Simulated assay, not measured.
Amino acid sequence: MDSGDVDFAHTDEAARKRRDKAVGLARYVWDRGIGGPELLALPDDRLRKLARAAGANPPSTRETWSVVAEMLDEKSRWAAVHPDDPRAVPAHADEKIMWVKPPLPPWPSR
């Protein structure tokens, strides 16, 4: 790439927009009680649906989702230190099962 070519995905403006989108997604995801590792384990189709439910255009790469996961981890650490703060409790944790399915118990052996 010569000096006249600009990689728009890695400009300061793109980084700012990616962070702004990540903040909105992180708020929505946090309120559903989804943690960073759980988020990153979701398949792409579920991530797209999650972004749309949050009112955002789905990120085109996993880079934004990685930033969201980091924010969720940071919020979880903060919540652990501030358990009595109402912001430390996800407001819609009952909706988590819509996005993250609990593992199925194994069938009993006979």
Rank of each mutant, 00 (worst) to 15 (best):
M1H: 13
S3Q: 13
H10E: 14
T11D: 07
D12P: 04
A14D: 10
R16H: 13
R19N: 05
D20N: 08
K21T: 15
V23A: 09
V23D: 08
G24N: 05
R27L: 07
V29R: 01
V29G: 00
W30C: 01
D31P: 01
D31W: 13
G33V: 02
I34D: 02
I34F: 00
E38R: 02
A41W: 00
P43G: 07
D45S: 05
R46V: 05
L47R: 03
K49S: 06
A51M: 04
A51R: 02
R52V: 02
R52T: 03
N57F: 13
N57W: 13
P59N: 09
S60H: 12
V67E: 14
A69L: 10
M71K: 06
M71G: 05
D73I: 02
E74H: 11
K75H: 15
K75A: 14
K75S: 09
S76Y: 04
R77A: 08
R77G: 03
W78D: 12
W78F: 07
A79T: 08
A80S: 06
A80R: 15
V81G: 08
V81D: 09
H82M: 12
D85C: 08
D85H: 13
P86T: 15
P86R: 14
R87T: 09
R87F: 06
V89Q: 14
D94E: 12
D94A: 07
E95N: 07
K96I: 03
K96C: 03
M98H: 13
W99H: 00
K101M: 11
P105I: 08
P105E: 15
W107G: 09
S109M: 09
S109G: 06
